[in-house]
Design a protein around this nucleic acid. Structure first.
Lengths: 247, 247
DNA sequence: GAGTGGTCTAGACCACGGC
DNA sequence: CCGTGGTCTAGACCACTCA
């Protein structure tokens, strides 16, 4: 049926077919015509029911899956998700104190350690202090309930490393650095949503380009030397922030 | 060519074809084989070159378009984006003062005004103060350079409305409320990344489910009465935040 | 007007996983 | 095992837009 005939399409043919279908399917879910938890008709049935091809059905279903309304399983059919899955939401730190507390109770895995690195500060980023000649680099991932939700690239001024190396295995860099609070004179963070690059996509198990919450954090000592730089990226549905607007 | 033959596929056939192609195309961009700004081969040419169907080419190209590396135009062909387009980044306010400043220089359009509403506070949201019997509701969108980047749903305690109605046409609610600073005793915000619902998708011109930066803001007077509730959603690539971690 | 990307069809084969 | 979703093919028509 090549032309846009009446067939059983729900609307007279103006809009794109797969968008019409997606809208129809969405309403089936929200009205309960497709009850939560139940299997919806198979792709073959949907093709026949609406007189469209498999490709079109899949374009429509793909949208709903992307929106988190449907879950597909190879043999079990396509099911309506109970609730658009709500993962645990971590409170992103807005102060060094919270940053230390945050690192204290998260399971971490160190993937890589390297010496004589320089932190990859983005082009055009505002002044973050004087650069030291060398930094130690740590690449870490953080889990919660077996779900990997955070990737961090850490850079620590190299001469500081021996002092805190022992603590680093068990605790976060912020915790370790804070063992001597006088080391830190300036600490700031920059937050944005950034698309996943290849490193993040690989370690967080998401598609390239997936929006991630990115925190760039840095600290300087009293001499204005950059002693800590971190680029930390979170699956965005796992984190939120709260703040008092009256300072 | 139904079976996974050698053809001109870059790798021996284990991986999925469209993923192989996407990887190949990505490397063409990053190595400069497809120079930035230039048009890449047409879909027809790519089909023939790699011995695959249009659908497969489009699956691969679709991924790169989603990653922001390519831009398609109906007749002009598909081009490599100069820089993965960096829109202007607004600094999200972290204090009431910044909130007021933020609202002062943004072009706004009021889409809807209603009386006798109640703010739609999410299920399970922590205490935000005593609810007044009625609120005035404003639905607004904000532009920058003709690009719509922000949608806000505002709720103002109804008895307060006459006092500031005149200012509201020209300025943000925060600006108007601040004309008498004694009105506000508590002001907080909650930030998260939330998928676009139908309202946001329509007014911001994005697909349903697109991750948006969401700010929930509220203010109470000295009696603990909720006088201001706002749900503001931004295209996430347009905003960032900065903060001093040492308070 | 012609070439391009966007959409859609009607098939086919495969891998996975519940029966 | 075998039904299911996932992938892929080889075509077709359309809308847009640039030369």
């Amino acid at each position: 049926m090549p032309s846009n005939s009446t067939a059983s399409a729900p609307q007279q043919g103006r809009d794109k077919l797969h968008l019409q279908l997606a809208r129809l399917f969405r309403s089936k879910v929200s009205t309960g015509a497709w009850p939560v938890g139940s299997a919806i008709p198979t792709v073959q049935e949907l093709e026949a029911l609406h007189g469209v091809s498999r490709t079109t059905v899949r374009m429509a279903l793909g949208a709903l899956v992307a929106e988190g309304l449907l879950l597909t399983r190879k043999r079990g059919g396509t099911r309506v998700i109970a609730a658009p899955y709500k993962p645990p939401s971590f409170l992103l730190p807005t102060s060094w104190k919270e940053l230390v507390a945050f690192g204290a109770h998260i399971g971490q895995i160190t993937l890589h350690t390297g010496r004589d690195c320089l932190p990859p500060i983005p082009e055009g980023f505002p002044d973050v202090g004087r650069m030291a000649p060398a930094y130690v680099h740590l690449l870490r991932v953080y889990d919660h309930d077996a779900a990997r939700f955070c990737l961090s690239q850490l850079y620590l001024e190299q001469e500081l490393f021996p002092e805190i190396e022992a603590q680093l295995e068990r605790s976060s860099l912020a915790v370790a650095l804070s063992s001597d609070p006088s080391r830190i004179a300036v600490a700031r963070q920059h937050l944005s949503v950034a698309p996943a690059d290849e490193l993040a996509a690989e370690h967080l198990g998401v598609a390239l380009g997936t929006p991630l919450m990115q925190a760039l954090r840095w600290a300087c000592n009293a001499d204005g030397l950059l002693i800590y730089w971190a680029r930390v990226r979170f699956l965005s549905e796992y984190v939120h922030m709260e703040m008092d607007l009256l300072k």
